[in-house]
């Protein structure tokens, strides 16, 4: 009897172990599927001309033969370091602007009472439904009218790329949720202490919402890194471009055969900073993404 029970348990254990093995196998299989494009990018970036244009392709190149010269060749194709600086400048300015405007307005929506608050908030939320393309058309005309396009200086280009993105209804909504979690008692206590609303916002609300602000910063910076359409539309000189535009323009096959090893080296130069940032700030990014998903 005891033996039978024991045997049964063993069987269940074995079944579980097989199940786990299958789970691992499936996860590894899909992980490989995810990794392959990255591997291919890195491998190609390290191949020589002869190795790239070889059929069937080489699946591995020994480290002794890695062609780091591809990276300098890629940098000669286009000033990617300059594009990176431009992108960082745009990301920093637009993120700072976004955080200032959204913190202030989210505070008003979360904490202050004013006429028409809920109606206004509903209207703002409704605009999130509208595809950005509808705004882009007029925004382009607006930045032209602001004088940021014709005879464009670097400052003009930066303004055109940042000012239209210095606020966001989505982040406002996101921050309002964070602010709402601060108990009302703190607000009244601060009032009794003679603190102004602004002091309260700065000393209490902002520190409490810091994780959300961090998340917004990261998401916003990543958006800038990926921005393609708007910068292409408004940057009038090659040297004002951002990384995505620079990368695409430098390696279009309209100019003939693509030097894939140089193209992939450039792609790697553009990709690596983001991955480094991601690995450093993994916790915040993942939290931000899962939270922005839960909001629905």
């Amino acid at each position: 009897m005891e033996e039978a029970v024991y045997g049964n348990e063993k069987q269940i254990k074995r079944k579980q172990r097989i199940r786990l093995a299958i789970v691992y196998a499936l996860v590894v299989f899909f992980a490989i599927f995810i990794i392959i494009p990255f591997y291919w990018m890195i491998l190609t970036a390290l191949k020589s001309y002869d190795q790239v244009f070889r059929s069937p392709p080489l699946l591995w190149v020994s480290p002794a033969n890695w062609q780091f010269a591809n990276f300098s060749a890629a940098l000669e194709q286009a000033p990617f370091l300059r594009y990176t600086v431009n992108t960082v400048v745009v990301a920093v300015i637009s993120t700072l602007g976004t955080i200032i405007t959204t913190v202030l307005s989210a505070f008003a929506f979360a904490r202050l009472n004013f006429k028409g608050r809920d109606v206004l908030f509903m209207i703002l939320i409704a605009t999130m439904m509208i595809p950005g393309e509808i705004f882009v058309i007029t925004n382009f005309l607006t930045v032209v009218r602001f004088g940021w396009i014709r005879e464009q200086t670097y400052l003009d280009a930066i303004l055109a790329m940042t000012v239209p993105f210095m606020t966001s209804v989505f982040y406002m909504f996101f921050l309002r949720q964070a602010f709402k979690q601060v108990p009302d008692e703190l607000y009244y206590a601060a009032k009794v202490d003679g603190k102004t609303d602004f002091q309260y916002l700065w000393r209490i609300m902002v520190p409490v919402a810091l994780p959300t602000i961090t998340t917004i910063t990261i998401l916003n910076a990543m958006n800038t890194w990926n921005a393609y359409i708007w910068p292409r539309l408004v940057s009038q000189q090659v040297r004002f471009q951002l990384v995505s535009n620079g990368l695409r323009d430098a390696f279009d096959d309209t100019a003939g055969v693509i030097m894939y090893h140089e193209q992939m080296a450039a792609a790697l130069i553009v990709t690596v900073p983001l991955i480094i940032v991601f690995i450093m700030l993994k916790k915040y990014i993942m939290r931000g993404v899962s939270r922005s998903g839960i909001k629905g």
Partner: peptide, 28 residues
């Protein structure tokens, strides 16, 4: 982390990598 990587890459850069993956003669 591995599964999250596509989210933090540049859509242009990785699109180029895909184009080369699908290359007729030299692709994987």
């Amino acid at each position: 982390t591995v599964f999250f990587l596509p989210y933090v890459t540049n859509a242009i850069a990785i699109g180029m990598a895909f184009a080369f993956l699908f290359n007729q003669y030299y692709g994987l």
